[in-house]
Amino acid sequence: MSEAPLIRLRGVSRVYRTGSVEVAALQGVDLDVEAGEFVAIVGPSGSGKSTLLHILGCLDRPTAGQYLLKGRPVDGLSDDELAVVRNRELGFVFQSFNLLPRMSALRNVEQPLIYARVPAAERRRRAAEALERVGLGHRLHHRPNELSGGERQRVAVARALVNNPSVLLADEPTGNLDTRTGRDILALFRQLNEAGVTVILITHDLEVAAEARRIVEIRDGRIVGERRGDAP
């Protein structure tokens, strides 16, 4: 492959300092992700999965190593430039949904477009479209507390998608859902992936990971193995 991959990590480390104690949450991680992939990151609690995802999502910076997104180094960017990258290239889905509680589903999904300076009318249209896409076309004006857990996570997915990001990043997106609802959300990710969206998803549920085409295993801040998932 001559072209640079969508994501390339080289020797990425992240050391947390709390007082005099140093915790190396990540140690020399190398990882390439191609556009269109569906990657699951698995590992025990405290192994550094979330830390890795935050770095991939430009919410955090590595203490050492290099991160190339679409072939461009991210390290030198200012906080505001990283905000723009998060807005245009990255979509987050969290375990605890992280919706804005006082706003309708539609308004929640509109928010990233506000920061992208999209005009109001187009914003509304695209937000409604995104909600349609995750199967919530009939819940546009409900607030988060008027939605079920699964529906909330769909709103979160719609919000992550609405600005057409290069990658969808999800940190245990099924962790707060019952098995069946979790499976529905997973099916949604699969469906989005089949439509061309790159997905990187964290889980410690191997059954969930099995849905992915590629499973990256992490332990004590190091990538210790990689398998192909059962997914077709």
Binding site: D79, A83, V84, R86, F92, N98, L99, L100, Q111, Y115
Partner: peptide, 16 residues
């Protein structure tokens, strides 16, 4: 604070 975190995650800059 959490709202601020969410907004930063979806692309709010300092000025926003």
């Amino acid at each position: 604070t959490r709202e601020i975190g969410i907004r930063k995650a979806i692309g709010a800059r300092r000025a926003d």
